[in-house]
Amino acid sequence: MDKLINDFSFGLFIWQIVLFVLLLFLLRKFAWKPILNAVNDREEGIKTALASAEEAKKEMQNVTADSEKLLKEARAERESMLKEAREIKNKMIADSKEQAKTEGDKMIKQAQAAIESEKKAAVADIKNQVAELSIEIAEKVIKEQLSNKDKQLKLVDDMLGDIKLN
């Protein structure tokens, strides 16, 4: 310890303090600050670059996903539109078929009804005419037959004979 204290050189101590402090300030100004700033900037740069790359990747994925989704949607829409069109077509055909059928049926019915009524009318007309004719004939016959007594008697006899037969 005695030797240590004896070895201690005050001048060297002062020189060391002065030189070291000077060195510290010079290095701080000309070396450490620029170096540490440059390194920090670089690290920040790397960090932001990595982050933006990640961002871009994500965005890219989003875009791809979006376009895929859009494509899918468009495809689905096309499909549905086609399907709808087909349905509409089918429905239209079916509808018109149906309509035609009902219309036809209706017309047939009407025609039938008309025919029926015509027929009825015709039959009634014929019946009337037949009745009139028969009456006329009968009138004529009776007029003819009842022009003499014999014939009137004979008729009565015939008629009575018919009734007997029945």
Partner: peptide, 26 residues
């Protein structure tokens, strides 16, 4: 004794070397 001794010279040399080395790095 504030002499420029061998140690002081070496400290000066080292200091200059450090300044040169690291300011050129900067």
């Amino acid at each position: 004794d504030f002499s420029i001794t061998k140690s002081v010279v070496m400290m000066l040399v080292t200091g200059l070397l450090l300044i040169w080395l690291f300011s050129s790095l900067a």
